[in-house]
């Protein structure tokens, strides 16, 4: 008993006062990419460097970057010395529409809130069933970490539940392997309507590195209607939490 109390004193109160305080991220953190407005001389080389085809250039050598495919590895940033594209420390990356993940010349759209009816239904209590469909356990781990004291997901009324029948929606990770397709569909069908689907990580959003391999598809969107996309490989827990709260209209 005393040992437990002593440990409790040592461990203190550690829940981070988010969203009132901004999270502190390491200086080397790679967040929202920023595209230079001027054309890039070696655009073709940058496109060639990208492992997932996330970066592309129009005929005028203006770059575009699809954060839904991006691994945030920084290969393009290194190839151009940060002159055409660089990664900012902006951790807020989630978007409602898949098209909103395409970044051009310094613009980006953050996730806006659900329509009012859905916000009324889920805004104060959202129960999610997580399905890993070929995820590498990095996205899963950084979803799971939201349940720890630092993030304390429960204080926002969001909770992961054991059965899809108790859930308001699915949070899916992984590119959706052929071997998980049926299980994912069945899990979705078991969730009562109205329901939502959240795709977390490059694999779930677009297939990422594994898009259209002979053993997998190209993300959740091919199978189910996706209501929220959270880019990253894996997304930082703050990125996921920001997306969830923004989606529920809990932060402006």
């Amino acid at each position: 008993m005393w040992r437990e109390l002593k440990a409790r004193m040592r461990q203190r109160y550690r829940t981070y006062d988010y969203p009132r305080l901004e999270p502190v991220l390491p200086v080397t953190f790679k967040g929202m990419p920023v595209i230079d407005p001027s054309p890039v001389a070696n655009a073709a080389e940058l496109v060639e460097q990208c492992p997932t085809g996330a970066i592309s250039a129009d005929p005028g050598q203006h770059l575009r970057l699809d954060t839904g495919k991006c691994l945030f590895c920084g290969a393009c940033e290194r190839a151009c010395g940060g002159q055409g594209v660089r990664f900012s420390k902006e951790y807020r990356l989630a978007a409602r529409a898949r098209d909103d993940l395409m970044i051009r010349e310094g613009e980006s759209r953050l996730a806006d809130a659900l329509h009012r009816e859905a916000a009324r239904l889920f805004g104060r209590s959202l129960k999610l069933r997580q399905v890993s469909a070929g995820g590498c356990n990095a996205c899963e781990a950084d979803v799971n970490v939201l349940n720890t004291l630092t993030f304390d997901l429960g204080r926002f009324g969001i909770q992961f539940v054991a059965s899809p029948r108790h859930a308001d929606g699915l949070l899916v990770t992984g590119p959706v392997t052929h071997n998980m397709e049926l299980a994912l569909r069945k899990t979705y069908d078991a969730v009562p309507s109205p329901k939502i689907v959240i795709a977390v990580g490059a694999c779930a959003v677009s297939g990422g590195l594994y898009a259209d391999h002979n053993a997998c598809g190209a993300g959740v969107g091919r199978l189910l209607p996706v209501d929220l996309h959270v880019p990253g490989c894996p997304p930082h827990p703050w990125t996921i939490l920001d997306g969830l709260l923004r989606f529920l209209g809990r932060i402006p």
């Binding site: 997932t52 070929g134 071997n179 998980m180 391999h213 053993a215």
Partner: peptide
């Protein structure tokens, strides 16, 4: 086997950017 992504087959011919 549910997580099978066909990873090893895509390593042949490498090393490459992926």
């Amino acid at each position: 086997g549910y997580q099978h992504r066909g990873l090893e087959r895509h390593l042949r011919g490498g090393p490459d950017r992926k």
